[in-house]
Design a binder for these strands. Sequence first.
DNA 1: TCAATGGTTCGGCGGGCGCCGAAGCATCAC
DNA 2: GTGATGCTTCGGCGCCCGCCGAACCATTGA
Lengths: 232, 232
Amino acid sequence: MTTVNALSEIAALMGDPARASMLSLLMDGRAHTASDLAHNAGITAQTASGHLARMVEADLLAARAQGRNRFYRLASPEVAHAIESLMALAGTRATPASKSAAWRRDPDLRFCRTCYDHLAGQVGIAVTDSLTRQGHLEPKGPRDWQLTPSGELFCGKLGVDLGAARQASTRHFARQCLDWSERRPHISGALGAAIADTFFRRGWAERLRRSRTVRLTDSGRRALGSHFGATV
Amino acid sequence: MTTVNALSEIAALMGDPARASMLSLLMDGRAHTASDLAHNAGITAQTASGHLARMVEADLLAARAQGRNRFYRLASPEVAHAIESLMALAGTRATPASKSAAWRRDPDLRFCRTCYDHLAGQVGIAVTDSLTRQGHLEPKGPRDWQLTPSGELFCGKLGVDLGAARQASTRHFARQCLDWSERRPHISGALGAAIADTFFRRGWAERLRRSRTVRLTDSGRRALGSHFGATV
DNA sequence: TCAATGGTTCGGCGGGCGCCGAAGCATCAC
DNA sequence: GTGATGCTTCGGCGCCCGCCGAACCATTGA
């Protein structure tokens, strides 16, 4: 009885083309913004919002607010498993979320991308780790960092425009931003943006048009080694 | 794209309460008639027929005609697996088809029941096996048996009304009928009905009212041992 | 042959829900 | 502060699909 209703309710949630499209995109194991999911499903933001709310309510998805975006991801590996077994029935083999084909198909995106205006992916993490490891960055509160004196010097040498970064008084200066592909925080906020700007200005990295993917240039790779002590 | 559509189509099929109810019933791993499924889902036969046709079309179910009934079962273990993982998401743990709770909940039905007018379940199989093992019954064509001379004698001793059975000229005399709980054929047709009738007449078995379940009496158990050399 | 039973097909009704436009709220940048 | 952006809520439209009554077909048993 109640188990039958539960089955039909969960299945019905997955049974709508728009929601299935979102779930399918989320099978890459990463989190996506509401607008990203809406665009991908070919529906308007308000329609998507309703779908997402229902799936969160049913514990299919988990939501996390970050700035003015909301990131949605599959609530658990069990959800991915259920979707996978349904896809298997349809004759279309789906790979587990942890080893998603989409994930592997776009290793570049995982390697380096923009997250708003700062760097994310392996490169973003490498920069962040380097700064903390060398004592340039230290925790300040639960979701922020602050630049140490040595950090000030380091940024000055790199050419990071700290002055401009500090001017944006209403913006967080050195914020932690959870990296969805690496599952660890990278640096965002005004400082994160200034660092990314430095990478682009000095020709260490290039944005790929119509994509969040960022390509690390040869000089960028060398800079990562010499300035940050990191090999990626 | 196509994989997304496939996902939503399969999920949508399972997402209807009536269909989910049917699938849930079929999770016992056995086959059920169309009317059985319709009744269980609380819908009319014609509505159920449409649902069943769609699920067969999508390879969720397999159908098998038997007499004027149509038996439906899950098309594959994969289907059961997918349903199970959906139920798990709903927080309602479902057991695998092979060890279904429903199955265990009604061991009596599995032990002995009527299939139309003849015996099915473990008892039906025991009787059938005994007859073939003792050379009373031998294959005749792909779906029939015939009674050997020793079989004629044996039935006469038991009190099986062979004359009446042979009178029904339009009916198959000794037909194979696939037993859905034992997965092997038991004897049906006029002879099967006559044998069942003997069981009831001699007080070896009793029908339970409003159920296909048949109870084997103590004398029936003894008769199985003495006449059929079977212990159940 | 005829009646009974199980199953399916057809046609039309009705309700649920997926959709978007408009408006409202929060965050961010300046 | 003001404007821009991302997301949500609300209201109403439209369509899909699940439902049943009626009729039809197939098998069975007399």
